[in-house]
Simulated scan of single mutants.
Amino acid sequence: MSSLVSGATRTEHAMPTTEELASGDAAATVELKSTAKWLVGGSASTAAVLVAGLQLTNLEKLGEADWRLGALALGAAFLALAAAFRVLFQAAAVLGATRPPIDLLDDKDRADRGNYPNGPRVEQPNDPLLKELVVLRRTELLGPNRDAIGSLIDDLRRTARGLAGARVTIQGRTYRPRVPGDAADLRALATELERRIRGVSDAAERFETAKKYQHLKDSFVPNAIIFLVGVLGFAWLTLLYPGRITQSPEVTEPVQVEMTVPSSESAATAAGLDKTCAGMKLTGAAVAGSLDKPIIVTRAQPGCPAHRLSDPQGLIVVPAASK
């Protein structure tokens, strides 16, 4: 490919200039991506606020009262976050829509029922993007007497040869560079072809961006509903429901207790006792904690020293009978 065509191709990878943004396709793409950028910021901020506001203390109390309710609250939070992140990822896909180079579009055009350079296109392409470029907007983008992106590139290539001094024929007209009028027309034609090549890539980027934006728009309301259901469910479970759970009274003064230690040595050690205490009946006092989860100080007896138990798992603890 000549340097002129290579330069045009490199332009497809560069950011649009101010002049290029004047085109309707480029301006529409910028507007769609600006809207998506706003949605990215809003979704990220909402997710951050939700994470920061998780009532973990109440969630812990809820889980202690009923682990199934705790799991349900976590599920509601996950549902809300998943909806927010889905909007975030879909908006990011809109922002990530690329401006394809003209040679890539040409390859796709030739591979999708293209007939160039053998003759006019006989069948429409299957790809909706190519149908937009070479069928629905053929004259606007490619110009008259062209139905393939490759013909636009080849005309630019011939124009480059003509500007280099060669005699060329483009669209049925023969250009002689040594003729002053033909040289000026070649320069004007080169400018037009470069503009059309930029326009084809602009149109392709707008089409792909609009497709991703429509997907984002169609799923936004369902995602918002899912998000609200998750937030409200989590808020009800962690803020309102724990208030209805009867809390076990706190131990404010020593309460005399009796406990039976399982006969298994492993069960005794799991409860925080020496294995020599297995199978014994111990006495002691609950000095702190709650009646459901008391902190107990046991009295020493032969074969079992005194212990302080903060989590007496597996022990049967009952208040001692008053004497």
Rank of each mutant, 00 (worst) to 15 (best):
R167K: 09
T35H: 15
E192D: 15
R299A: 13
G279I: 09
L104S: 14
V135R: 10
V135P: 03
D127P: 05
K33P: 08
A164K: 02
T283E: 03
P254D: 12
F220D: 00
G53H: 06
S310V: 10
S45T: 07
R161H: 08
P100T: 10
L232S: 14
A48W: 03
A48N: 09
S2Y: 02
K212E: 09
T283L: 03
P312R: 03
A203G: 08
E132I: 01
Y116P: 00
T260Y: 07
T98N: 08
L50V: 07
A52R: 10
A44S: 14
V87G: 10
E132K: 12
E208C: 09
A80H: 10
T298H: 06
V51N: 13
Y116I: 00
G230H: 07
Y175C: 02
M1P: 08
A306L: 12
T246L: 08
D112T: 09
L193N: 07
V87T: 13
R158W: 08
S219G: 05
T9D: 07
T191W: 03
V5H: 07
A80G: 14
M280A: 11
G143A: 05
A27F: 09
G96S: 14
C277S: 04
A320T: 14
A71Y: 08
S290I: 01
I153G: 08
G272H: 02
A111T: 04
S219K: 03
L309C: 06
L240M: 13
R198I: 02
P302N: 13
T46L: 12
P302V: 12
L104D: 12
N58V: 05
G233I: 04
G199D: 09
K323W: 11
S45Q: 07
E194Y: 02
K217P: 03
V200L: 08
V179Y: 15
G272V: 01
P120M: 00
L163I: 10
L88C: 01
F227I: 03
E140H: 08
Q256I: 12
D182L: 01
F220P: 00
M1T: 05
R113I: 02
K281P: 03
L105W: 07
E194S: 06
L56Q: 11
S45I: 00
A224N: 00
I226P: 00
L21D: 06
L133W: 15
E20V: 08
E19I: 06
R113G: 04
L105G: 06
A26K: 04
L62S: 15
R299E: 11
I102A: 12
D185Y: 00
N58C: 07
P305I: 01
P249K: 09
